[in-house]
């Protein structure tokens, strides 16, 4: 589904990604771990098409099509979804309106009928319950005054509504209490399917108890320096990144 070959990217003239290679097939769940500042969020943002980052070389294809040629919104309509590490607020724009606009943009792209306000309200209410968000949150401004955990649940709610092909979850588990972690994990597991891939960035192997990945990768210094199965995360937790021989200057850029 997603194929990343020798991807280099920089921000403000500074190279952050230094040759990423990654293959993700439909139905798979990949976890990316790695020290702070190693480029995990950068990779997520580059895949989603944030033009604050410049791709200097390499290629990325989604089901064989060149992803890097597409605008952010086109990538989204092709099924790329990014759950943000730090979701931004849009004051005054109700979550409901925002979500309906997004869902209808996708539907339109697929040549489907748009959903009217009443239909959408019904759907949104169901999905909000799935992530244990009070439907009252639908009426509030997008992320406006949401707590950290509420923002994260809101992100997962969006993934559930938009049903992407590739969901990239950037530290969706950070800042969640134990119950919320369970709720969010259930949400992510509900997303798992034969024709959908999930790429999740996390610092905590405990998340991987809830969402069992097929592969675990370690990103350090802008490169994937080790890949393995579920057990790699356990090993990392036990031994730390030092075990992989990461020197300080490799860790961050």
């Amino acid at each position: 589904m997603l194929s990343i070959k020798n991807l280099h990217a920089s921000v403000e003239g500074k190279e952050i990604l230094k040759g990423i290679n990654l293959e993700i097939k439909a139905g798979e769940v990949h976890a990316i771990m790695g020290p702070n500042g190693s480029g995990k969020s950068t990779l997520s943002q580059v895949l989603a098409g944030n033009d604050a980052f410049e791709v200097t070389s390499g290629e990325v294809t989604l089901n064989g099509d060149n992803l890097l040629d597409l605008e952010t919104e086109e990538r989204a309509r092709e099924g790329i979804f990014l759950a943000f590490q730090y979701p931004v607020e849009i004051p005054g724009v109700s979550n409901l309106q925002f979500l309906r606009t997004a869902v209808n943009a996708m539907r339109k792209h697929r040549g489907e009928e748009e959903m009217n306000a009443a239909e959408f309200m019904k759907l949104a209410k169901e999905v909000s319950k799935q992530v244990d968000l009070d439907p009252a949150f639908l009426k509030r401004g997008v992320n406006e005054g949401f707590s950290g955990g509420e923002k994260k649940r809101n992100e997962i709610m969006q993934a559930l509504l938009l049903q992407p092909k590739l969901a990239i979850l950037d530290e969706t588990d950070s800042g969640l209490d134990i119950d919320a972690l369970k709720v969010v994990s259930d949400g992510v597991n509900a997303l798992r399917s034969e024709d959908r891939a999930i790429l999740m960035v996390t610092h905590y192997q405990r998340l991987l108890n809830h969402i069992v990945p097929d592969y675990v990768h370690v990103l350090a210094g802008g490169k994937i320096i080790k890949s393995g199965g579920r057990e790699l995360a356990l090993e990392l937790e036990e031994k730390g990144y030092g075990w992989l021989g990461i020197k300080d200057e490799d860790t961050s850029n």
């Binding site: 098409g49 944030n50 943000f84 943009a105 938009l162």
Partner: peptide
């Protein structure tokens, strides 16, 4: 830019 990116990432023109 962050607000714009969020909207566009959700498929909005």
């Amino acid at each position: 830019d962050e607000q714009m990116f969020l909207c566009r990432q959700r498929g909005i023109d």
